[in-house]
Amino acid sequence: MKKLDQQTVEERLNKLEGWEYKNDAIHTSFEFENFKEAFATMTRIAFEAELQQHHPDWTNVYNTLNISLSTHDADGVTEKDFKLAHTIEALLGNQ
């Protein structure tokens, strides 16, 4: 998969509220009511990521989930990252 140029990434980010581009990845974070809700959401995302065979770099501290997406084989952001980002947004009811 081909790495997207910075202009294309920034244009595509206009359709994803709360996401930003830095260090050759797109990033967001979500805050939940508690740890249980954050972890449950991670589990839902994990199943979708596995189906897409594209896995996020993420961290979870109590009720906060931080997600970074990039395609390591391409050394940057590709269509795969935006597909997973839109899936994540849909799972959270943001689209």
Rank of each mutant, 00 (worst) to 15 (best):
S70D: 15
K15R: 14
T78R: 11
L65E: 14
E79A: 08
W19Y: 13
E89Q: 15
G18Q: 12
G18V: 14
V9Q: 03
S29G: 05
L4S: 08
L65S: 10
M1N: 14
L51M: 13
I45L: 04
F30K: 11
E79Q: 04
I45N: 02
L92G: 06
A40M: 09
K2H: 15
E17C: 06
V61F: 12
N60V: 03
S68F: 01
A90M: 04
G76C: 08
A38W: 10
T64E: 11
F39E: 12
H55S: 02
F35D: 07
E33C: 06
E33F: 07
V77G: 02
L69C: 01
F39M: 15
E79S: 02
T87A: 07
D75Y: 04
I45V: 08
D81K: 05
F82K: 00
I26H: 02
T78H: 08
H55W: 00
A40F: 00
I88Q: 06
A40P: 01
D5W: 04
G76I: 06
G76H: 09
E20R: 14
R12C: 07
H27V: 10
N60I: 00
D24P: 08
L84P: 01
D75K: 15
Q6E: 15
I26E: 04
L92S: 03
L16E: 10
K15G: 13
K22I: 13
T59P: 01
E17N: 11
G93I: 11
H27A: 12
G76E: 12
N63I: 09
E11S: 14
Q52A: 15
K83F: 06
H55P: 01
L69A: 04
N14L: 14
F30C: 12
H27D: 08
K80E: 10
E89G: 07
E31Q: 15
A49V: 08
E89W: 08
H54A: 00
M1H: 11
A90N: 10
L16P: 04
G18R: 09
E10C: 09
L91K: 04
V61R: 05
D57Y: 02
D75L: 09
T28N: 05
L16F: 09
I67K: 07
S29V: 00
T71L: 03
N66R: 14
K22L: 11
L92H: 06
H54E: 00
F82V: 01
K36V: 13
I26C: 02
N34R: 06
V77P: 02
E10Y: 01
G93P: 10
R44A: 09
F30S: 13
E17D: 11
E50A: 00
A49C: 01
A90C: 05
D81P: 05
K22P: 09
A38V: 12
T8M: 02
A38S: 15
I45G: 04
A38G: 15
H54Q: 03
K22A: 12
D24T: 05
F32T: 02
R12D: 05
A46R: 03
W58S: 00
S29F: 11
S68G: 06
N34F: 05
D57K: 03
F30N: 12
L13P: 03
D81V: 03
D81A: 02
K83H: 07
H55T: 04
K3T: 11
H27K: 13
